[in-house]
Design a protein around this nucleic acid. Structure first.
Length: 256
DNA sequence: ATGCCCGGAACGTCCGGA
C-alpha cells in the first residue's frame, strides 16, 4: 500500500501535474494540501477519471486539504478539534483500507514573533492532543502532510538564512519533537537516517531548486502498527523539476 | 539589506506563502 503526501500549491494551477504524478507514482492514498479552493471547485471528475475517490475539505483562496484514495475513504473528522473558532481548512481525517489517514497542513507561522506564530504553536498543541488520542486508542494511523517545521539543522539549506523563520524556531521544533516522541515513527528519517539532503520544499525564488537550497518540512508519521509494516519512503524530487511544478515535492511511503 | 517567484482574487495590485 502506497501512501503519499503532496502540497500542490493550488489544485487549479496544478491539476495537469497532479494527474501526471498520480499516473506515474500510483499511490493508493494521496493526502493533498493547499488546494486553495472551495469543495465545489475541486476537480472531482478529473480525479475520478484517474481512478481516485476524493474527500475534500476546502476553503476559498487559501489552505484546503484533501484525501484521494483508490478505495473509498470513510470520513472521520473534518477540521482539527480544540478550537471551535478556527475556520482554516487544514485537517482532514479518514479511514482507508483499515488505516486512519490524516491530511495535515500546519500553519506557516511567519512572521514570528506575532499572532500567526502563536496560532501555529496553538495548532501544534491541538495536533499533539489529537495524535495522543489516536495513540491511546491504538488506531493504526498515518499523519501525513506539510508540517511547516524543519526538525533539524540538516533539514535546512542554510540556518543563517532561516534563523528568524517560524519553520526552524526552537518552539516549533520542540512541539514537533513532543509529537514524535509520543511514539510516532517519522518515515523518511527512519528509512534514510544519514541522508543530508532529504529536502521536500524548494522556494520558487532565488534559484533555490537548481542550487538545491531546500527544506524538509513535509512529513509522514506512522503509528507503531503501521511502522512495523514500513517498506520504503521516498521524496519524488523529479516532480519538483517539471514545468509549472509545485514548490513542494510529493513524499510517499510503501507499507506491507 | 531587500527582493527575487508563484497562486488566487480580481482587474490593480495585494496577500500569503516559506
Amino acid at each position: 500500500m502506497r501512501i503519499a503526501t503532496f502540497n500542490v500549491n493550488g489544485i487549479a494551477a496544478r491539476l495537469p501535474r497532479l494527474l501526471e504524478w498520480l499516473a506515474a507514482a500510483r499511490p493508493d492514498v494521496a493526502c493533498l494540501q493547499e488546494i486553495k479552493c472551495v469543495d465545489e471547485k475541486f476537480p472531482v471528475k478529473e480525479v475520478e477519471a484517474a481512478g481516485y475517490h476524493a474527500l475534500v475539505h476546502g476553503q476559498k483562496g487559501f489552505n484546503g486539504v484533501a484525501i484521494l484514495s483508490r478505495e473509498p475513504a470513510v470520513e472521520v473528522r473534518r477540521g482539527l478539534p480544540g478550537d471551535d473558532t478556527d475556520e482554516q481548512a487544514r485537517y482532514l481525517e479518514a479511514d482507508v483500507n483499515n488505516v486512519r489517514i490524516a491530511s495535515i497542513y500546519l500553519p506557516n507561522g511567519n512572521p514570528q514573533p506575532g499572532p500567526k506564530f502563536d496560532y501555529k504553536l496553538a495548532w501544534l498543541a491541538r495536533l499533539e492532543a489529537r495524535a495522543a488520542a489516536l495513540k491511546a486508542a491504538e488506531t493504526p494511523a498515518v499523519l501525513a502532510g506539510d508540517y511547516n517545521v524543519a526538525p533539524e539543522d540538516r533539514d535546512v539549506f542554510s540556518m543563517a538564512a532561516m534563523a528568524d523563520d517560524a519553520l526552524v524556531q526552537p518552539a516549533s521544533r520542540a512541539a514537533f519533537r513532543r509529537l514524535v516522541h509520543q511514539g510516532w515513527t517519522e518515515a523518511l528519517r527512519s528509512v534514510h537516517p544519514a541522508d543530508e539532503h532529504l529536502y521536500t520544499f524548494w522556494d520558487y525564488q532565488a534559484g533555490c531548486w537548481p542550487r538545491n537550497a531546500g527544506l524538509r518540512i513535509d512529513h509522514v508519521l506512522l503509528s507503531p502498527a503501521v511502522a512495523d509494516r514500513l517498506l520504503s519512503a521516498h521524496v519524488d524530487r523529479a516532480a519538483r523539476g517539471e514545468d509549472k511544478a509545485s514548490d513542494h515535492a510529493p513524499v510517499w511511503i510503501d507499507i506491507a
